[in-house]
C-alpha cells in the first residue's frame, strides 16, 4: 500500500463522512531505524486535500488565509486505526461506534 491510496479516499461510517485529508503516524523516538506506525486517519467533511499546512498547527497568521483554510477544514476529526473496518480503492469503511478524536497536534 502507498499513502496516496489512502489520501483523498471517501470515508463511510455507515453514512458518508468526508475525505481522508491526512494520515497520522507515531514515531516512538527519533533515533535511526525507529518504525513510524499508522495511528489514525484525519477526515475532513468538506475538503478533499490538506492545504497549506495550517489546519492542525498553531499558526494563525496571516489571518485571512489561515482563517480561510481552517474554515475549509471545519468539522475535521481523527479516527484511530482500530476503528477502520475495511479498506478499498478510494473508499474506507469505519466500524460501528467509531470514536471521533481531535485533529489537533500537540
Amino acid at each position: 500500500m502507498i499513502i496516496t491510496d489512502l489520501l483523498g479516499s471517501r470515508v463511510f461510517g455507515p453514512d458518508f463522512l468526508g475525505f481522508v485529508s491526512d494520515v497520522r503516524f507515531f514515531l516512538e523516538s527519533e533515533t535511526e531505524g525507529q518504525s513510524a506506525r499508522l495511528y489514525g486517519i484525519l477526515i475532513s467533511p468538506h475538503a478533499r486535500s490538506s492545504s497549506l499546512g495550517f489546519e492542525r498547527s498553531g499558526v494563525r497568521s496571516p489571518w485571512p488565509i489561515a482563517a480561510l483554510v481552517r474554515w475549509r477544514h471545519r468539522g475535521s476529526f481523527l479516527v484511530r486505526w482500530s476503528d477502520i473496518e475495511r479498506l478499498e480503492v478510494g473508499r474506507i469503511q469505519l466500524r460501528p461506534g467509531f470514536e471521533r478524536a481531535s485533529p489537533e497536534l500537540p
Binding site: 507515531f26 514515531l27 516512538e28 513510524a36
Partner: peptide, 16 residues
Amino acid sequence: TPGTDDRPGRWLDAQL
C-alpha cells in the same frame, strides 16, 4: 478526545 496521546515520541502527519 485528543487525537494524540501522552507517550513520549513524535507525531507525524504524512501530508504535513
